[in-house]
Design a protein around this nucleic acid. Structure first.
Length: 957
DNA sequence: ATTCACACCCACACACCAA
DNA sequence: ATTGGTGTGTGGGTGTGAA
């Protein structure tokens, strides 16, 4: 048969297999193309035999067949013996017996580990990533199911892509020693699709290096960097969808038929770049901090709860390595100047000194900055405190005037010695002079009350307002250029020579926007649109039942226009309607939207996170019994169009800042501490409120609210008491006290579920089993009829001990950040009373945003506590007081499902999952209207990092 | 000259740790 | 408990050489 001698023993040279007539040719005589993967050990011999027998070695995409000893799940391969045997026999043998099979797989584990199913088959089974990391360098951490607020995701369940221990070194060695093939190793369409499919299954990893490195282990003909490059340059634009990932399992969500649920919205990648808005928000918050710019973790923890796009650690690092180096005040001013002049500010970058060892250490810079900026912050805090102080005759917190004066003088002195001559606050201070500020403020303050218009244009008033609003500087002609280039001088001063590369480039023109590569940008859930986009957004204004105006900005800015105006500009005599501020000026239409036609479809139905798309601004409410408005609020209500208003916006926390600063200064004076009579003040911080309640012997100098803790003996007593009698807490006060009668103003309100202890056993935890109808029928039977209105609860019915526990347990165990200063000012009993008052005013079915706003504004409860409360109570405010009461007593809000009398969301959902008749039963229980309202509330409840309730609403779908 | 695969770079986001 | 230092590897590229 063959015309050549062959020797197929191991020592034989298979390369000598030559036939007289070519056998690896097509019918038309053209050579058959064979692809031999680069890692095929006999590759050289194979290619020689192929080519000497009429075939040709080609790239994979052009190959008629792939010759390899290694099985591959997604492309058929044929064993090298097919070539050798065919050549030996002089005829092309039947392919069937040479096809590589899974049983021959050289590393089946690897396949199972990474790509467990062939392409195009979506069985719903995700690759099994969940092996624990062996080598940290190969570990991939997926975002946690819920970046539940307020904290950032913790890698408690690291998801791991991991090679077998032996495979990785082998492959890397192979790539290191195998020379580049002479022929192109182009990506085949199949390989492209495999890459895309893997990205769809792991969308969060789409930018990482190691993800593609792992893919490369299943695609040995390409390296990880190559695959990554291929994806980023060629395939990204073809990623028309990704699979919806269950945040709990980090696996794709399956639907009924086992297929994977797709989505058009990419999840956030593992890391987010900081934006100019991020930097600005942080700068503003730092300057409002009682201590000025700080690295204190407490500050960043609180900040991260409101700004969840980065972790607290990350925010802290951002300050340490960027804002601190550049200067917080300077960046704020730079940002505002850029905005005012219609430019797009850049984020801080190139600030790390890793390659610039001669540069001053971050520590040094932080310290230097902290000194000066703290001075500014302190001065501003003092001023804020003064402006917020109630009128003369009713001042209830007495800070010795001398202390106040000294503090201002010191702050001004410190500020003057700082190198911040171009900052707005200092410019104002210089103009006014510390020695005249206070009397001027005092006179203006009293006079302005009687006839605000008269003083509306007063320069002193302007100063006060501007300072309180942290307004921008007057840019005089001689300073204009300087203001335009705030960075120019900094470099010379701060940076050592030769550190050009590490110099910030804030003023460099913005790069032209690239297209195509980031098609999801406009939709990315993790990014709020830039500030200026707000200008073009149509806003809707709603009025809450309590009169707060809720502005809804559909595009969800980080900073609302009014806040941006407040923070960035003060123009008391300018009519915004006539001369719109630069911040509001219509620049939004110029905004680059990075989106290609290809992906236009992906942005048509963006998933809107309601929480992020809503910016609320609180306009002072006329409810005088709830609020004691400071001077500026009072004035602003009279002339709202021209006066900046401190709003209830996360970035501004003036009251605690101011008062705590005052207290610190006051307590630094030995005589002032004990001599100051501590009368209650309407808007008091936790420091004051709690310190007042502490026995004199327990009182410690108050430096920050977070330091306030109940006395140890009280905590011990509380633990004992709670431990022994936790179920009896609610027996202390007759539950009927808390019953809210049927309110004619809220006909749709849910019937009150209030029961005496005999009628309402503690409902077992859900883990104990399904909620049977047997345990619950007695509830609806009596709760369908609302009890008659009764008097408000009488606090006297609580035992003294219980009152103390109510006071202290909350602060001991519930995060203090759940309470705003207002809560501390009014106290728990008043908060309870207000909660009940709110319930009377609200119809069931009010949106989460409205409830959130008014609960924060009028009761002083903030997320995530409010989120949990509203969720578990299904937006039913009649349940909230009981929930709140129990949460406070227990010092936590996780066990409130067992609160007697609160038929909470959990039971709705459990019942629906267990009982086919659930809907009918729930309608009997709640009333059909309320069931609809509850369902609507849950369905519209924001998917939430803050409340960790994502997906529960799906029970209703 | 262009395209492609592949290697490599580096700022920095994020987290962890030791003092 | 705080805090500064630092490791890790992501994110977004660029460089290089072969086809």
């Amino acid at each position: 048969m063959s015309e050549f001698s062959t020797s197929l023993d191991d020592s034989g040279d298979r390369m000598r297999l030559v036939n007289a007539t070519p056998i690896f040719v097509r019918k038309d005589g053209s050579p058959m193309g064979f692809h031999v993967p680069q890692d095929e050990p006999q590759r050289e011999a194979l290619i020689r035999v192929i080519e000497t027998n009429g075939g040709i070695a080609v790239a994979a995409r052009d190959a008629d067949m792939v010759i390899s000893a290694e099985y591959n799940a997604w492309s058929p391969r044929y064993l090298p013996d097919f070539i050798f045997d065919s050549a030996a026999q002089g005829v092309v043998l039947r392919l069937d017996s040479f096809r590589t099979r899974l049983v021959q797989e050289t590393d089946a584990d690897l396949d199972r580990e990474f790509m467990d199913e062939p392409m195009g088959v979506h069985s719903g089974a995700a690759p099994e990533w969940a092996q624990p990391p062996v080598e940290r360098t190969h570990a991939y951490y997926m975002p946690l199911p819920d970046a539940t607020a307020p904290n950032r995701p913790q890698p408690s369940q690291p998801r791991v892509y991991q090679s077998t221990p032996r495979q990785m070194p082998q492959l890397s060695k192979l790539r290191a020693v195998v020379p580049r093939r002479p022929e192109a190793n182009l990506f085949t369409p199949e390989e492209d699709e495999i890459i895309l499919e893997e990205v769809r299954r792991n969308p969060s990893l789409r930018n990482t290096h190691s993800f593609f490195e792992v893919i490369s282990r299943k695609m040995p003909s390409h390296s990880g960097p190559s695959i990554r490059h291929r994806y980023r340059t060629h395939l990204q634009s073809q990623l028309e969808y990704v699979y919806k990932i269950n945040p709990q399992t980090n696996k794709p969500v399956t639907v009924e038929n086992g297929a994977l649920k797709t989505t058009n919205v990419l999840p956030r990648p593992l890391k987010l770049k900081y934006t100019a808005d991020d930097d600005y928000a942080l700068a503003v918050a730092l300057l409002l901090s009682p201590t000025g710019p700080t690295t204190s973790r407490g500050f960043y923890k609180m900040f991260a709860e409101r700004h969840t796009n980065h972790s607290a650690d990350s925010w802290r690092d951002r300050y340490r390595k960027f804002l601190a180096v550049h200067g917080v005040v300077e960046y704020k001013q730079y940002y505002e100047t850029e905005k005012a002049q219609g430019r797009v500010p850049e984020m801080l970058k190139n600030m790390t000194s890793r390659k610039n060892p001669g540069a001053p250490s971050i520590d040094d810079l932080v310290r230097k900055r902290a000194r000066t900026e703290t001075s500014v912050a302190q001065f501003d805090a003092l001023l804020g405190a003064y402006c917020n102080t109630p009128e003369e005759g009713t001042t209830t917190v007495q800070v010795r005037e001398t202390t106040f004066d000294e503090s201002i003088s010191q702050a001004v002195h410190n500020s003057r010695s700082a190198a911040h001559t171009d900052t707005s606050i200092l410019a104002e201070i210089y103009e006014t002079g510390a020695e005249t500020i206070q009397p001027q403020m005092r006179s203006v303050k009293s006079a302005a009350k009687s006839s605000p218009k008269k003083y509306a244009d007063s320069s002193v008033l302007e100063v006060i307002a501007r300072l309180a609003a942290r307004g921008k500087p007057k840019i005089r002609d001689s300073e204009t250029e300087k203001a335009k280039h705030p960075r120019a001088d900094d470099r010379k001063v701060r940076k050592s020579p030769g550190s050009v590369k590490s110099s910030p480039r804030v003023n460099s023109p913005a790069k032209p926007t690239r297209t195509c590569k980031h098609m999801f940008l406009g939709n990315d859930e993790s990014r709020a649109p830039p500030v200026e986009s707000v200008a073009a957004a149509t806003t809707e204004t709603h009025t809450t039942p309590l009169g707060s105006r809720l502005k809804v900005f559909p595009s969800g800015p980080l900073v609302s226009p009014d806040l941006a105006k407040l923070l960035g500009e003060y123009t008391p005599t300018r009519d915004p309607a006539v001369s719109p501020s630069p911040v509001r000026a219509g620049r939004a239409s110029k905004l680059p939207r990075v989106k290609t036609e290809k992906f236009a479809m992906l942005t048509q139905t963006p998933r809107v996170d309601k929480r992020r798309s809503v910016v609320t601004e609180l306009v002072p409410t006329p409810i005088s019994t709830l609020d004691q408005q400071p001077l500026i609020d009072t004035l602003s209500s009279r002339n709202p169009s021209s006066f900046p208003v401190r709003t209830n916006v996360p970035e501004t926390i003036p009251r605690p800042v101011a008062l705590k600063t005052m207290l610190r200064f006051a307590s630094s004076d030995e005589s002032s501490d004990e001599s100051a009579p501590g009368k209650p003040v309407a808007d008091m911080t936790a420091s004051v409120s709690l310190a007042r309640k502490m026995p004199q012997s327990e009182r410690k100098p108050t430096h920050s609210a977070t330091e306030v803790r109940p006395p140890e003996h009280m905590l011990e007593a509380g633990k004992r008491w709670l431990g022994l009698n936790s179920n009896d807490i609610f027996r202390i006060s007759d539950r009927k006290e808390n019953t809210i009668g049927l309110d004619s103003e809220s006909p749709s309100a849910t019937p009150t579920r209030v029961h005496s202890k005999q009628q309402q056993p503690v409902i077992a935890d859900s883990d104990d089993g399904p909620v049977s109808k047997g345990t619950s029928p007695e509830e609806p039977a009596e709760s369908n009829t609302r009890e008659a209105p009764v008097a408000p609860p009488t606090p006297q019915r609580y035992t003294k001990e219980f009152q103390q526990l109510l006071e202290w347990s909350a602060f001991a165990r519930i995060k203090e950040s759940s309470f705003s200063p207002r809560f501390h000012a009014i106290g728990i009993q008043e908060a309870l009373s207000r909660l009940k008052g709110l319930a009377k005013r609200y119809p069931h079915g009010v949106s989460f945003d409205v409830l959130l706003l008014d609960l924060e504004n009028h009761v002083g409860l903030v997320n995530p506590l409010v989120g949990s409360m509203l969720f578990f109570c299904t937006g039913d405010l009649f349940l909230v007081p009981q929930y709140f009461e129990a949460a406070m007593a227990h010092g936590k809000n996780s066990q409130v499902q067992t609160i007697p009398g609160v038929w909470c969301t959990k039971y709705d959902l459990m019942l629906r999952s267990k009982d086919e008749e659930a809907d009918r039963f729930l309608c009997e229980f709640h009333g059909e209207e309320n069931v609809i309202a509850r369902r609507e509330f849950l369905l519209n409840f924001p998917d939430d990092r803050e409340t960790g309730t994502e997906g529960l609403g799906a029970f209703w779908k």
